[in-house]
Design a binder for these strands. Structure first.
Lengths: 168, 168
DNA sequence: CTACATGCAAAGAATTTGCAAAATA
DNA sequence: TATTTTGCAAATTCTTTGCATGTAG
């Protein structure tokens, strides 16, 4: 059953959300959403903005930030923090809930779900009197490809953030 | 057994680490470590700096940042990201491993450990061919006190970061 | 027409870095 | 004394905001 926001419905869902707030369904908003939902992976704002500019030059970065927030408010998108010092976004509610496996060597991010862990998290919350609202979990390690390739090396995530490739 | 870095050993461990790098055991470094290990909770750099200044005015913030990194390299401290847009630190290796329960109403951070979850995380990693190096998990919700007090409200963590109380 | 949205540039916040002066070994 | 550190301020990086102009409804 149902809290679906798959590749089809974002248009209507977004329009509904905007109208509900007395807002306006504008060209840039639709363009940015269009591009975002066409992307794979967990792009950062910068990546989204670049993709948008490729198809619709003239759209300002501030609007990309603002629209991503809008999509987040609409529940169509979720912000993630992988400890890199900037936010990454992903389409929301693709599945019930999922966590991430982040390869510290190549940066690949795999998604996975585990109901047993979900249950234990809920139990742990209750054990401490918490009313669980949400949770996040990331496992950092080396993916099979990098293990085979023997590259345990670079792309240090975790710990000391804000240093990932500079780009200005 | 033994990867202990409790209230006693940080002095020697830090000194050893510094000397091993051909570095110097300086006044500010010891002062900052002293203050940090005397603090409770998961202070952000700002809080650490404030506490340091109270006892040793004249220490620059840059040095606090640099020393916290040093402590991290020495394995005495761990950086955490609770999605607030800034890093929090905690003394490392107090226990085997633990996760966090973050109250979205009052900001309290509780620690807990759960071996069963640890096991499942390892299993999930293996299932996807990952060599797990580390992992982090946070549960966001409302703590018992806030539930009783009926405050589900403010202190929005998660999602839209970088907006938490401004202080300059 | 009128309120909301956009773009641009400036403002902010957290963190890093350059450099001359200070301190350690 | 030779280097490493420190402090301060300036620079960076990501994100938010102010404001004049553009535009959906």
């Amino acid at each position: 059953m149902s809290t679906r926001s798959d590749r089809k419905g974002w248009q209507e869902r977004l329009t509904a959300h905007i109208r509900a707030q007395g807002g306006r369904v504008t060209r840039p908003r639709l363009e940015i959403a269009e591009v975002f939902f066409g992307m794979r992976g967990h792009p950062g704002v910068e990546e989204v903005a670049a993709a948008v500019h490729k198809r619709w030059p003239g759209v300002g970065n501030a609007t990309v930030y603002r629209t991503l927030h809008l999509l987040s408010d609409a529940g169509l998108v979720e912000a993630r923090q992988f400890g890199e010092g900037f936010a990454r976004y992903e389409a929301a509610a693709t599945r019930e809930h999922h966590d991430h496996l982040v390869c510290t060597a190549c940066g690949t991010i795999l998604e996975f779900e585990d109901d047993a862990i979900e249950d234990l998290q809920r139990q742990a919350s209750e054990r401490h009197g918490f009313l669980m609202k949400s949770h996040r979990m990331e496992i950092y390690g080396v993916c099979s490809k990098c293990q085979a390739r023997g590259s345990d090396g670079p792309a240090q995530r975790h710990a000391r953030p804000r240093k990932a490739r500079a780009r200005r």
